[in-house]
């Protein structure tokens, strides 16, 4: 099955719900696999999406994870109603984290989430307003010649 037209969808993510954490990303990964996208691209998209989903679950009351797949690229948008990020530059540093102890006990909150989203995306944008929320947009090109670097 190839990609002939734009495929889009979204998932509502509830903050703090660790029992279902990762289900949305797993569904998106399965969809990408069914479209015949290469294993490496699927893996990058799945990792970036999973980190975005976990950030909504860890730090916010709720958010929406949207995806849009065209013959050229995968676009993932994670929009949350969380506290926002005061210093984005600091939050992008590997190892910087504001996660509480109980989250760390579950294996998360090591300060690699945002850097990992950026690493696995060809284009990465983050926009945050304190007290309102954060929006992350990630684009992964299906044709490697359009990739960064």
């Amino acid at each position: 099955m190839g990609i002939k037209e734009t495929i889009e969808g979204s998932f509502h993510i509830i903050g703090g719900d660790f029992s279902r954490a990762g289900e949305a990303s797993t569904e998106i990964k399965t969809l990408l696999q069914s479209l015949g996208i290469s294993k490496e691209i699927v893996r990058r998209a799945a990792i970036a999406t999973f980190e975005a989903e976990m950030n909504i679950i860890i730090y916010t009351p709720a958010g929406i994870l949207r995806y849009e797949i065209t013959p050229e690229r995968i676009r993932i948008i994670a929009e949350d109603m969380g506290p926002g990020i005061e210093d984005i530059e600091l939050a992008m540093q590997e190892g910087y984290s504001t996660a509480p102890e109980w989250v760390r006990e579950l294996g998360w909150g090591s300060g690699m989430g945002l850097p990992n989203m950026k690493k696995n995306s060809d284009e990465f944008r983050i926009d945050s307003v304190v007290g309102e929320g954060t929006t992350v947009e990630m684009i992964i090109y299906l044709d490697k010649s359009e990739n960064k670097n």
Binding site: E51, W108, N116
Partner: peptide, 9 residues
């Protein structure tokens, strides 16, 4: 590792 983001990274 016990850190899941490290696994992903």
């Amino acid at each position: 590792t016990d850190l899941m983001s490290e696994v992903l990274y």
